[in-house]
């Protein structure tokens, strides 16, 4: 992030008014066309000369991509072009939905800043693919899937594994993500999000977690995901499995943290060493899980 430019490289801007039209453009131009949503990532990458594009396809003119809908039992649908602030407002007006998706709400209020959130989108945040984004963690614990549409069909792609690196995803160049679903959390679940930033705007460790029925081993569900600490969003599945065991919750938290710290491959950079990140994962995860279990979060 050290390019000296004020200006953007040349490209053609297109703003299709319908999904069909957009898909037509992508089909025709393939890799040469890049989708622009809130534009935060695209404009930044273009300015840094980390991205080249013949065509910038602005999908904000496609009406059906703006959407927030909660369908009980199924989940929360958030359109690709719905801004983070629109989501926050929706959740603040619907306290019941907000409590179901507390981790998503909290991550949203920590995502970028209050002004950028008028443009930033949840889908865009996830697909940017940088290590320290805020939306992927909650997406993983709510088993989120993205609806990808192309001229040849449509599919639901799990968010877990969709990103392969900065600006690299499993999506095809001719596919457009129209919406994301955060699935209905297990009955009785509470969730939360911790962003731990250390002298950068981004978290060096971000934890999203969900806990249901902590003291009832038969029904207990725990989900944990990280960004910031790892190169890609990381869902701690092995650790989650442990919570099926009949031991007390507190003891399992300890085991889970150990499993996570033993298995995870963490980043090392000038902002935090790998050791410190691992250590923090333990502290922050323990705090979050215990507080969620106690209803103190």
């Amino acid at each position: 992030m050290s390019a000296p430019y004020f200006t953007l490289p040349e490209f053609k801007y297109v703003k299709p008014g319908s999904l069909e039209e957009a898909l037509e453009i992508l089909d025709e131009h393939g890799e040469e066309a890049k989708i622009m949503n809130g534009g935060i990532g695209v404009v930044a990458f273009l300015k840094e000369r980390l991205m080249e594009a013949e065509y910038i396809v602005d999908i904000k003119g496609i009406p059906e991509l703006k959407k927030i809908e909660y369908i009980p039992g199924k989940g929360l649908y958030v359109g690709a072009t719905t801004t983070v602030n629109e989501l926050i407002e929706f959740l603040e007006k619907s306290p019941e939905v907000r409590e179901k998706y507390r981790a998503l709400y909290e991550a949203s209020t920590h995502l970028a800043d209050a002004i950028l959130r008028n443009r930033a989108t949840i889908v865009g945040d996830i697909l940017e693919g940088l290590p320290y984004m805020d939306a992927p963690g909650p997406a993983l614990i709510f088993e989120a899937e993205m609806h990808a549409v192309s001229k040849s069909g449509e599919r639901w792609v799990p968010v877990d594994g969709i990103v392969m690196g900065p600006m690299m995803t499993q999506l095809q160049p001719n596919e457009i993500v129209t919406e994301i679903i955060f699935k209905e959390p297990p009955e009785g679940a509470r969730s939360g999000y911790v962003k731990f930033a250390s002298r950068t705007e981004y978290g060096i460790v971000n934890v999203a977690a969900l806990v249901a029925h902590p003291n009832d081993p038969g029904k207990r569900v725990v989900k944990i995901a990280y960004t910031g600490a790892t190169a890609l969003p990381y869902r701690a599945r092995e650790a989650e499995e442990l919570f099926k065991k009949p031991e007390p919750f507190g003891k399992l938290v300890e085991e889970a943290v150990k499993v996570i710290q033993d298995n995870v491959e963490v980043l090392e950079d000038p902002y935090a060493s790998a050791d410190f990140r691992k250590y923090l994962m333990g502290i922050l995860t323990t705090q979050l899980l215990v507080k969620l279990a106690r209803g103190e979060w």
């Binding site: 622009m36 534009g39 404009v43 930044a44 209050a114 002004i115 950028l116 008028n118 443009r119």
Partner: peptide, 8 residues
């Protein structure tokens, strides 16, 4: 409010 450097 938007940051106009990030808007085309």
């Amino acid at each position: 409010p938007v940051k106009s450097c990030m808007v085309l």
